[in-house]
Design a binder for these strands. Structure first.
Lengths: 350, 350
DNA sequence: ACATCTATAGATACCGTTATCTGCGATACT
DNA sequence: AGTATCGCAGATAACGGTATCTATAGATGT
């Protein structure tokens, strides 16, 4: 007795084979194209496939061939121009290499991250790309090493994108950009413009990206002989709203501050909005620098001076690294950043 | 002779079964949990799974169970706040229903769209969600009907998101928002503010969404007894740059125009930038309305009055529709929009 | 005490491909 | 002419699960 009724069955290799009067294996070979098939036979098979509207079953194929041609892309949240740009890079590169792209989100929840990695092991994804800052640095290294090894056992490769590289020996690739150096450059730029009381606004601790940004901000102070004031590090979130709240507090509490280094452009947008509401002119009364160079950065008022991060390239490299490993390709890539000067910074007024 | 060397093999059901001293079927039952397994046996199996770090093979499972628990999401381009928000909705709903999310892009190329649909047939995705305006309306209905039927034959469901619904009888679901009505409302709002020469800036023809927006814009003129001037429909692209170019041309050619209806917020951003460069004040000299209500709309200068589109909900509904079909769920959903009044529109000055 | 039922575990047969080995007629070589 | 080679197609056995049917031991009913 057949397990499934015949009606509505999708045509299989065997159906095509029968119709073409050949064996299933021959049809498979026509499909794969890696084995000689006589032209007349091929023609018969192709016609049968067309007539039946045959479509291979990707699951059966990856079961038999033990390769999935799928890349997984794991982010906190797809919203935000930041992730969208990386996603575009990942998707472009993946599809240009004939791979499909699985999208997962974690909402910054380590539990979900774990679940997603397990899911990807089930899917036998060729690569799993983890994007964005990592939380909880205490157990981060341990978790990452576990992920890397677990995925390796399942035949796939872990790629860290914009996250700290794991220690030597952990089977993972890394694509990063120089967070610390970029923050250093942004801060140094403000210092060069005469600013001495520079506030930092955004997430401050617990996320690798921001830890690095704060570190660069701090080092710039030290290197330029500017006294570092711990109370100017204003901790909040990565949102526009947080930027506004931070700026509001700053203006009323610290009239000595003449510049703000925002952790992201989104935060900078919030800062600018709050300053405008309060009648603080940018850049005349207050200079502002952002981080990311999102597409609308030049549409803020004033046009935002910010750090350009090559998001899209980050995504492309992540896929490239995962797919072309071994053959001379390196495992760790560091991409450059640069400051984009627009109108939100001015020399400090005497 | 084994086809594959033993080393590096990932543990299978059989391995777990052997270690636990039970049959493979029992392990499968522990995994599925839909069949009684004696507690001690279950415990043995679970321990063996843990010890071997066993992970099911999703491909083998979907081959045997003929269900993939995967939803595909097809967009023109993941960049742009617009798509990112829909993507978030899709991903949230998909993962909350235990589905994985496949992401594909077409770059607006119908050829690629066809290829992507074929790919999804291979993947046996449960649903394929096509997002965004459709080009080439001449053959659109035909193509869509083909996609819908082809996907149905492969056991999956086509969902159109923000695209025109196909004719009756075509097996597809639709989630839309009222483009024409929203454009009508936006234009009527400008007319109510005394404007009579209102330019339309953006893609004008060949894309369903914009065709509908232009239609609403036109109908508002008719209903309010305002003479419609064809030459005020300024055709461009969906980009910021296009908006700037359009505004530049408009200002020099048509000094009588006092308001602009931009096809998207991105276009509106470009329009605002160009007007600012030329010293045209908004809203004193020129009113501007956008479309989408992107997250940064209120950070433009002036804060943009625009049409709010429930993007995220659009994504959620698309998944919901695809997955809960039949059991009383409708096949077509139309979501509402509304105008968000900010600062970019003022009454026409005498 | 015997038949019946229930709970649990095993056996078997696919799901739809691809890898590998074998088969066979035609061509090439000595 | 006899044999090695080649080009092409088929047979068979995985790949790693699940659905379905069957088997068995202990509980239950009369």
């Amino acid at each position: 007795m057949p397990r499934r009724p015949e009606r509505g069955r999708r045509p299989t290799l065997a159906d095509v084979a029968e119709r073409a009067g050949v064996s299933a294996m021959t049809v498979s070979r026509v499909l794969a194209g890696n084995y000689p098939v006589a032209p007349p036979t091929r023609a018969k098979v192709l016609r049968a496939m067309r007539e039946l509207d045959y479509v291979v079953n990707a699951h059966a194929r990856s079961l038999a061939a033990t390769t999935t041609r799928t890349v997984a892309f794991v982010v906190d949240d797809v919203t935000g121009p930041f992730f969208a740009l990386i996603a575009r890079g990942v998707e472009h590169q993946a599809s240009s290499e004939g791979r499909l792209c699985l999208l997962c989100t974690t909402h910054g929840d380590p539990e979900r991250e774990l679940a997603v990695v397990e899911l990807m092991r089930e899917q036998r994804a060729e690569a799993v790309i983890l994007v964005g800052g990592a939380r909880d640095t205490a157990t981060y290294a341990e978790r990452t090493a576990y992920f890397a090894r677990a995925l390796e056992k399942s035949g796939s490769r872990l790629v860290l994108c914009g996250r700290p590289a794991p220690e030597e020996g952990v089977p993972a690739s890394t694509v990063q950009y120089d967070n610390e150096g970029a923050a250093y450059a942004a801060t140094a730029y403000l210092i060069a413009n005469g600013h001495r009381r520079i506030a930092y606004a955004g997430r401050a601790v617990g996320l690798s990206t921001t830890d690095e940004r704060v570190a660069g901000y701090r080092r710039a102070h030290a290197d330029h002989g500017v006294a570092f004031d711990e109370s100017l590090v204003r901790a909040g979130e990565f949102s526009r709203e947080s930027g506004s709240a931070l700026a509001d507090a700053l203006v009323s509490e610290r009239p000595d501050v003449t510049a703000v280094f925002a952790a992201t452009d989104m935060v900078a947008a919030g800062v600018l909005a709050a300053l405008r509401r309060r009648g603080v002119r940018v850049p005349e009364d207050m200079s502002v620098v952002g981080f990311d160079d999102i597409p609308l950065a030049s549409d803020l008022t004033p046009a935002l001076t910010t750090v350009h991060v090559p998001h899209e390239q980050l995504g492309r490299e992540a896929v490239r690294l995962a797919l072309h490993r071994g053959r001379g390709a390196e495992d760790r890539v560091m991409l450059g950043t640069h400051i984009v000067v627009r109108d939100s910074v001015a020399p400090r007024r005497p």
